[in-house]
Design a protein around this nucleic acid. Structure first.
Length: 425
RNA sequence: GUGGAUGUAGCUCAGUCGGUAGAGCGCUUGACUGUGGAUCAAGUGGCCGUGGGUUCAAAUCCCAUCAUCCACCCCA
């Protein structure tokens, strides 16, 4: 039996890598224009960071972490999400000292031990952005705007922004109590899972999909009725800013966010073509996370975008991805005597920035032309007996079929110009 | 962790009532001694996921196991 990649992981093959690189470029460029800088943090961290940061009753920590003991007897976990690490890095490097607002983005893989399905992997990629140091609702709106611009630059369609406020430590506990009390009066209508969690984490009932639970939820107390004045005011301001920026949103009381660290603004982007897992990004404010992991109180907000799901959406929605041919010039080599000449010319072309590939196996010209065609080469440069005698190569434009002779000495420069013209066309 | 579906050529799949395998695409070559995409022809290619059982005989029936996909939970 062949060794396979572990369950829930996959290879990103050259045929798809152009799309990935393009998405990364768009992220760099869009988030860059909002003042965000890239940060790179370790792919594994102390387990404790996630236990305290993400929350020890969350599914992620309870059953989805890749945790192991290293040779120094430390408990280590592959990161299941990015925010905790970025907050840790911000605190550890004292980046907040003397700064007003800090803005970071990251791109990288995360790990969760889940059962794979469409749009869900054990190793998956996220692009995240985080802003620290300001609790102003302006940042909430801005960060949502950045996400929106990212998706629209990519051309992702059927995008919906779900928006909610989940309160803060002043008001959420009261709501949770009210919800718990309400749930107790409907225990027989809840599904098994929700029955089990109504004590410990009643807010999870809100996004349960079971019909019985949905019916219960329909008449449940609304968090929006329990928001304290500062939270309500904050939420209203966020919405006003979004209106100002002309960003559509759906107020959605059922956006709860599964991680413990969120407060106030919580949001989720969904897109079409994704199957059951249609959340393509999500995030919110986490003003208490820095304290939770032992740092000074530092307000923060951020979100994570699922790159794997972006890829699925782009594919399903037939979004055109800018691509570059892997080869500009294919050097056809005819006969053994031509090989040294071709090697030399290839080297010169490459030094001139022309993407060049050549025949290594001495096949017939027909086979070489087929290869050139398959590689989508724009030009084929033929080197055979005649060309060596004339010190000039036969250059074929694969688009038009036109051929001309170009002296070896002029070839690197001429091909460079031709390729530049071709690209700018 | 739970449920459902599927494993046959590099890829997408067919294979009837059990008689040890087929198509299309791809690839190679030729038609066209040095000219791609189109057409035609030939060729290449499979321990029928793995292990066991039933049978004269198993891709096909039975059991187990592994893997993949989809869904639940939860999330991105």
């Amino acid at each position: 039996m062949q060794i396979q990649s572990p369950k829930g992981t996959r290879d990103i093959l050259p045929s798809e890598v152009q799309t990935w690189q393009w998405v990364e470029r768009v992220a760099q460029s869009v988030f860059g224009t909002y003042g965000y800088q890239e940060i790179r943090t370790p792919i594994f961290e102390s387990t404790d960071l996630f236990v305290r940061g993400v929350g020890d009753t969350t599914d992620i920590v309870e059953k989805e972490m890749y945790t192991f003991t290293d040779r120094g007897n430390r408990s280590i976990s592959l990161r299941p999400e990015g925010t905790a690490s970025v907050v840790r890095a911000m605190l550890q490097n004292r980046l907040m000292d003397g700064a007003s607002v800090l803005k970071f983005y990251y791109i990288g893989q995360m790990f969760r031990y889940d059962r794979p399905q469409a749009g869900r992997y054990r190793e998956f990629w996220q692009i995240g952005i985080e802003a620290f140091g300001a609790d102003s609702p302006a940042i909430d709106a801005e960060i949502i705007a950045a996400g929106y611009q990212f998706f629209s630059t990519l051309g992702v369609k059927d995008l919906t922004l779900h928006l909610n406020s989940i309160g803060d430590p002043a008001c959420r506990p009261k709501y949770v109590e009210a919800l718990k009390a309400y749930a107790k009066t409907h225990l027989d209508e809840l599904c098994g899972k929700c029955y089990a969690r109504h004590e410990r984490n009643p807010m999870r009932i809100l996004d349960c999909k079971e019909s019985g639970c949905r019916a219960v939820v329909a008449n449940a107390p609304r968090l929006s009725d329990y928001l304290c004045d500062p939270c309500r005011e904050n939420f209203d301001t966020v919405k006003n800013y979004l209106d100002t920026l002309e960003i559509d949103y759906h107020e959605d009381p059922y956006v709860v966010r599964g991680l413990d660290y969120y407060s106030r603004t919580a949001f989720e982007f969904t897109a079409g073509g994704l199957g059951a897992q249609n959340a393509i990004g999500g995030g919110g404010r986490y003003d208490y996370l820095a304290e939770e992991i032992g740092g000074a109180p530092t307000p923060g907000i951020g979100f994570a975008l699922g790159m794997d799901r972006i890829m699925i959406a782009l594919e399903a929605q037939n979004v055109t991805v800018p691509t570059a041919s892997p080869v500009d010039v294919y050097l056809a080599v005819l006969g053994d005597a031509a090989m040294p000449v071709a090697m030399k010319l290839a080297q010169q072309l490459r030094e001139n920035g022309v993407k060049t590939d050549l025949e290594y196996k001495g096949r017939g010209l027909r086979a070489q032309m087929r290869t050139a065609n398959k590689l989508n080469a724009r030009y084929v440069v033929m080197i055979g007996e005649d060309e060596i005698g004339n010190e000039a190569a036969t250059v074929r434009d694969m688009g038009s079929g036109d051929q001309q002779l170009i002296a070896f000495a002029q070839l690197p420069e001429t091909m460079r110009e031709k390729v530049d013209n071709y690209i700018s066309r």
